[in-house]
Amino acid sequence: MTIHQLSVFVENKSGTVVKVLDCFKENGIQLIAITIADTSEYGICRIVCSEPLRAYDCLKEAGIAVSISEVFAVSLADKPGAAADVLRLFTKEGISVAYLYAFLLAGKAVMVFRTDNKEKARSIIESSGLESIEDSLLSEVFV
């Protein structure tokens, strides 16, 4: 139901993201999705990749401020309105979403989001019959 996502703290200055991406390159880890949230001074780079646990160790070794966390990942139908319908399942139960992004993986549309009310989100996914994504899918695609 959840996948491991890496979050990297970067300053808003030239070259900081390249250093992070080089780490993936050097260790042969495949990026699946990357998104950067920024304020005027800082950015947080969120990354989904083929081997999150190994990537975490590599980034840490390189002295980069990185953390690893579990976020919800569900599969969407590939048609207009699919994302809205899925999100509504959560918001109508009073669950708010801290951030959200989506990507395509092996022909599937995947929506990733974080919420503080994890238990409730979990039970909604179970009861609504949504297809959720696990870490295993991330690595399988690139074997």
């Binding site: 996502q5 979050s7 703290f9 949230a37 304020t39 800082y42 947080i44 969120r46 840490k60 002295g63 980069i64 401020a65 990185v66 953390s67 690893i68 966390s69 976020v71 801290a98 951030y99 974080r114």
Partner: peptide, 13 residues
């Protein structure tokens, strides 16, 4: 910032 501080599972600002 110390690396260990951010590593506690932070993923927001």
């Amino acid at each position: 910032m110390r690396q260990e501080y951010f590593a506690q599972g932070f993923d927001t600002f």
